[in-house]
Computed example of a mutant assay.
Amino acid sequence: MSLTAHIPSHRKPRRRASKVALRAGVAGGVLSTIAVAGAAGPATAEPVTETIEMPTLTPTITAGLAASFAQSAEATQRVALGLELRAEEDAAAVKAARTAVKAHSEAEREAKAKKKAEEAAKADRAEAEATAERASRSSARTTLTPLSASSGSPSGSGSGSGSGSGAPTYSAPSKATGSAASVVAFVRAHVGDAYVMGSTGPNAWDCSGLVQAAYRQIGIDLPRVSGAQSTAGTQVSLSNLQPGDILYWGGAGSAYHTAIYVGGGQFVGAQNPSSGVVLRSLDYDRPSGAVRVL
């Protein structure tokens, strides 16, 4: 026996190959079993048998739901009708506003056109009167007969006349009496008033309107227009005028202007828009003739 046989070896004893193989086979079998079981899944799991119960629709519930649906539909329809009505009202209001604006614009245009036409007509009348007045001054007129040296001093003279001036003098009396005085006073009181075609007072006149008003205030109604006034009385000579006589320019029956003789070789008449009612000498615009009403 060796001297070292009783001393244990410090190395681990070797395992036998058979034991190692056995242990490896057992481990492999266990792992294979686990793998197969996992792959198969819960083959033995119990099926789900639990159910959910739905509520039973009774006639009462069904009727309530139907009523709710009907009310909701009716409310929706009312809202839709209301919106439709409001849209129609808004459209009508817009249309009415546009119509009103258009009517207002048309009314303004018509008013402007009417005013323009009136102004044009007024200007035409004024121009016609001015033309007639210029024509009357340039046409031949009846010459007033002057007094002779033996007739004594004249009772009146034309504008700018005086003693020894050589201007014509007139035999007509210079003072009015009775109704003639009222006619003269009336027209003299309106000297300075405006001339407006077609006006008969109280502060604006045309020529025949002033003559008619002067006689009307003493109770005599004369025709309204100059042509008729020029034949409303007895024709008198311009050399024999009396205060209150009606003077006219143009032909008797077709005169275009009239005035009142106030004495002293002067007359008062509504001349034209630029002059108004004026006091003038007969020499300023000699008349064509005269008629006596009083």
Rank of each mutant, 00 (worst) to 15 (best):
G64W: 12
V30T: 09
V30W: 06
V293K: 03
W205T: 01
T143M: 07
P146E: 03
E110A: 13
A135M: 08
A93T: 11
V20R: 12
S254A: 12
L3M: 13
A45G: 06
A213N: 03
A45W: 06
T44G: 02
G253Y: 09
A91V: 10
L238N: 08
R216S: 13
P154C: 08
A126G: 03
T60I: 05
D206A: 01
A185M: 07
L238F: 13
A66K: 11
Y215N: 04
P223T: 11
S208L: 05
A181D: 07
S9L: 06
G158D: 08
G209H: 09
A80W: 02
R78L: 15
S163T: 09
S18N: 11
A37R: 00
V211Q: 04
L247P: 00
D283W: 00
E119W: 08
G244H: 03
E84H: 06
T62D: 08
S150L: 09
L31W: 01
A252W: 06
P202F: 09
S139M: 12
V184L: 05
G160T: 06
R224Y: 13
V191P: 00
G233A: 04
V262A: 09
S9Q: 04
E50F: 05
T33H: 00
E50G: 04
K95A: 15
V225S: 14
G227A: 15
E129L: 12
P243W: 11
A180V: 00
R188S: 02
G38K: 00
V79I: 14
P223D: 12
A73F: 11
A37E: 00
R292W: 04
A120H: 07
A113M: 11
H104A: 12
G178R: 02
P243V: 09
H104R: 11
P273K: 14
A270W: 02
A100W: 03
R224K: 12
N240T: 14
L31K: 00
L147C: 03
R137N: 14
I61M: 05
T76F: 12
E106A: 06
P47S: 13
A270K: 01
A214G: 08
D124P: 02
A290S: 08
A181R: 06
G162S: 14
L81I: 10
V225R: 08
A70T: 14
F69L: 15
G253Q: 07
S275K: 10
V26D: 14
V183G: 05
S274E: 09
G29D: 08
D124I: 05
A97E: 14
G253D: 04
D193Y: 07
W249G: 04
M197K: 00
Q242N: 10
S68D: 15
G251W: 05
R137M: 15
G162P: 01
M1D: 13
V268A: 05
W249C: 03
R23G: 10
A120K: 13
S288M: 03
K95E: 15
R16A: 15
A123D: 14
S161P: 02
A39L: 00
S151H: 09
A130Y: 05
T177Y: 01
S174K: 09
P55E: 10
R134F: 14
T169R: 06
T177I: 02
G178Q: 04
A194D: 03
E108Q: 15
L57T: 00
G209T: 04
T51M: 12
G198Y: 00
T231M: 14
G251S: 13
C207L: 04
G289F: 01
